[in-house]
């Protein structure tokens, strides 16, 4: 029996995997990919809620899906800008290892 819980747990696990990647990788592109995993995890959760409360008893609750669409939109924009930044940084410093990108250091 697949219930809402199944999707929520799936989303939580995916989120944590993405988070682990975002916190532990050194390659900036890998971090971006991990963040995309996290965003997908959130989308699954939102769409899961949306579907769970859709039906005759609850009416149409499509807000979750709307949110997912906006997240995808913003994620696409974010990916484009972030990759452009990575390329710009690479061009200037010949590395995309964020351990070496520490201009914010005190």
């Amino acid at each position: 029996m697949v219930t809402l819980n199944s999707f929520l747990v799936l989303g939580a696990i995916l989120f944590c995997i993405g988070l682990f990647g975002a916190l532990s990788k050194r390659n900036a592109v890998a971090i971006l990919m991990s963040i995309e995993i996290m965003l997908n995890a959130v989308n699954i959760t939102l769409v899961g809620y949306s579907s769970a409360f859709m039906g005759h008893t609850h009416g149409e609750r499509l807000t979750g899906q709307i949110f997912a669409i906006f997240i995808i939109t913003v994620a696409a924009a974010e990916a484009a800008v972030a990759l452009a930044m990575i390329i710009a940084i690479y061009r200037r410093r010949s590395t995309i290892d964020i351990g070496e990108i520490n201009l914010m250091r005190w």
């Binding site: 819980n5 929520l8 939580a12």
Partner: peptide
């Protein structure tokens, strides 16, 4: 955090709601 989230999902009021509203 993963354990915490899974535990929270399993014990939240929404999980109770999902019992009568299966996908």
């Amino acid at each position: 955090l993963g354990f915490g989230l899974v535990y929270a999902v399993g014990n939240s009021a929404m999980a109770v709601a999902s019992a009568f509203a299966p996908v």
